[in-house]
């Protein structure tokens, strides 16, 4: 039986479209159901996974997601076996000078209550925390 709280994806832009339906399953399986937060959280996780596809470029071509819900708290973990994330290369867009790229991490950090990163056993390990509205 498939665990509704886990998802393994091919590291491709097409596969990122599986994140929304998976998140809906997580919400249903947790008893949250419909929530006004879901699409924002989907956007944040989508951006995190897109960073893995575009920048980490995992050698095995896979991304692994897992979710845990406690009350109104949702934690989503993402791991990949790609290149390590370099915080020094993270860009913060200048509000007064619109630029073409560099908004992904800004979007994640605005939606998530916290975002943690570690590197262990050749894996990038991300953990994003969210508060889920019950409406």
């Amino acid at each position: 039986m498939t665990d509704p709280f886990s998802l393994e994806l091919e590291a491709s832009h097409l596969s990122l479209r599986d994140i929304g339906p998976w998140l809906a399953t997580v919400f249903d399986a947790s008893g949250i159901g419909e929530s006004s937060s879901r699409v924002s959280i989907e956007l944040a996780i989508h951006e995190l996974a897109a960073n893995s596809v575009d920048h980490a470029q995992p050698a095995d071509g896979r991304l692994r997601l897992c979710a845990a819900v406690t009350g109104d708290q949702l934690v989503v973990g993402l791991t990949d076996r790609g290149k390590p994330f370099d915080p020094e290369r993270k860009t913060t867009p200048d509000e007064n000078r619109p630029q073409v790229r560099g908004y992904g991490m800004m979007i994640i950090e605005q939606i998530a209550t916290s975002l943690d990163y570690s590197r262990l056993d050749e894996e990038n390990i991300w953990s994003a925390h969210f508060v889920v509205d019950s409406s």
Partner: peptide, 16 residues
């Protein structure tokens, strides 16, 4: 129904 940062980038580049 959905726009991500890559989609936004396509619009921003064209605007610039």
């Amino acid at each position: 129904g959905f726009v991500d940062s890559a989609g936004l980038a396509a619009l921003v580049k064209a605007m610039k």
